[in-house]
Simulated scan of single mutants.
Amino acid sequence: MADIKYDIIEEIGILSENARGWRKELNLISWNGAAAKYDLRDWAPDHEKMGKGITLNKEEAGALAKLLVQREL
């Protein structure tokens, strides 16, 4: 598997943290030099390891926010 390069442009927030210190974070990340996207995934404390996650462009993130507001979570 090729190396994946990422640059965390902005750390937006932490949703949760487990006992091992891994945190579920929402960040703005540039993957392999591409335009930054919203990214939700688990990260090791040093940001050197990551779990599976999802990336959303601005429009998708806005649509998700509207859906969550409609559900009145």
Rank of each mutant, 00 (worst) to 15 (best):
K52D: 08
W31T: 03
S16K: 12
I8T: 12
I9T: 12
K5Q: 14
I12S: 04
P45L: 10
E72P: 01
I12W: 10
R41V: 06
H47F: 12
D39W: 03
L26V: 05
H47P: 03
L56R: 01
A36H: 02
G51N: 01
I4S: 11
A61Q: 01
K49Y: 07
A19N: 14
V69Q: 14
E72H: 08
I9E: 12
G62V: 03
W43T: 02
D39N: 08
Y6T: 05
G33R: 00
G62A: 14
M1R: 08
A65F: 03
T55E: 09
I8S: 14
K37S: 08
E17I: 13
I12C: 01
E60G: 07
L56F: 00
A34T: 06
K5F: 09
P45Q: 08
N27F: 06
E72W: 08
E72D: 13
I12P: 04
A2Q: 15
I8F: 09
L67Y: 09
D42M: 12
E60P: 01
V69E: 14
M50L: 10
R23W: 10
L26C: 00
I8M: 05
E60C: 06
K66A: 13
Y6C: 11
L28C: 09
D46C: 02
V69T: 11
L67H: 15
D39Q: 07
R23I: 06
I29A: 05
L68G: 14
L28Q: 09
D7P: 06
L15H: 12
K5A: 12
M50A: 03
G13L: 05
R71A: 15
G53S: 01
